[in-house]
Design a protein around this nucleic acid. Structure first.
Lengths: 209, 209
DNA sequence: CCTGAGAGTGCACAGTCGTTCACCGAAGCA
DNA sequence: TGCTTCGGTGAACGACTGTGCACTCTCAGG
């Protein structure tokens, strides 16, 4: 036996997380039963409690995990912005990275999109908080862009909220359009257009005193 | 007895719809049981089938009903646009009307926001379709605005998608911020700023040939 | 080597679930 | 007036739910 005990435990924990993620693909956390998860994992229902004290706790763990994926995406986006030249380049690369990550981490994005609106209150709150953090990060990024020197912090936050909202919506449409590459390409192109429109508006913007 | 039979039936049907709407306030359709609804209404579970063949069918009825509210809002918005002078006026009145309607029809907006992401597939599809219709309507409205004469139909749709997305997000935040008037006022102000930013961007926009 | 911790088992419980069926009683039509 | 239609009833079913408890077996540490 080359597997230590904590490794075994971790493996089962992962299996539970994966099973929940899989079962959540076409339902919601609030409609997910402990016994379904246990059956999917291949353990007895009561063994579930060795890892999580409730489905809700499982949900919070999944939120943490999902936002690790999401932050990895933001990191890639930032890297792309550094490399790209001009606004058009930033927009193109950012949307491409979004599409790519949505594909690679489909389950995580799907989970967030669904539970953001329908999950247990604590899960909703956790997701809301994480997204707010993302908006804050984006706001500080935007502050470094040329043309925003005179902006108020307030306006930066409002703009980044708009951008995040649009990108979340784009991710959601890509998820529902999954499997039709032409539709997806169109959605990505639309997202690029929207980003360009918003940035053009932003360039003209002057914060009120 | 001054109540005819079809009236009685309609009254029960309404009671079922209201009960479902009420129970959905802090859960989701997929986690809603036929028996809960029946108990809330005060009828026996099997009587439910006299009105709907399943919870899913109930959901579709609620979608129809909710979008009646939503279209009433759009009608008010359009009327406000006719009266208002200038972009600023249009933006101000539109957001005010949105806030007002979200308050008046809280349950309908909450239902749509939740089931849009988490409902049964058919319900999600129905909501998606209705929202797309709204986007189409908005696109034709935008086409009448000065400055959009040269726009492609494509770009009009993309812009209206952006606006609808932002407004849906605003409605959702207002719903979660419910009860804190200062927070709500701030959200409304942010929505106005976002709309202005977008419209400024749109004014500069020229569709590619 | 012995012992204790702890992941996983098996059974049992009291509820709840959707759905079936036969039935009732009053409204509506002839 | 009598007959039909139909919204609502009540019991019953088999399946599924979360959770408690006593148990086993095995790995890790003294």
């Amino acid at each position: 036996m080359t597997e230590t005990r904590v490794e075994r435990k971790e493996r089962t924990r992962r299996a539970i997380l994966d099973a929940a993620l899989h079962l959540c693909e076409d339902s919601s956390l609030v409609a997910l039963s402990l016994r379904q998860v246990a059956k999917e994992v291949g353990i007895v229902p009561t063994a579930f409690y060795r890892h999580f004290e409730s489905i809700e706790a499982l949900g919070l763990a999944l939120v943490d995990e999902s936002f690790v994926s999401l932050r990895a995406m933001l990191r890639d986006v930032r890297r792309g912005e550094g490399a790209a030249d001009g606004f058009a380049g930033i927009v193109d690369s950012s949307v491409s990275i979004l599409v790519e990550h949505v594909h690679q981490q489909r389950q995580h994005f799907r989970f967030i999109a669904r539970e953001r609106a329908a999950g247990p209150p604590s899960v909703r709150e956790a997701i809301r908080h994480e997204i707010e953090l993302c908006e804050r990060e984006l706001a500080t990024d935007l502050a470094r862009l040329p043309g925003t020197e005179q902006w108020s912090g307030e306006d930066l936050r409002v703009l980044s909220n708009l951008i995040v909202t649009a990108m979340v919506a784009t991710a959601e449409s890509i998820l529902t359009a999954s499997g039709r590459p032409d539709v997806e390409r169109q959605l990505a192109e639309n997202a690029r257009t929207q980003l360009r429109m918003v940035l053009i508006g932003a360039m003209q913007w002057r914060s009120r005193p």
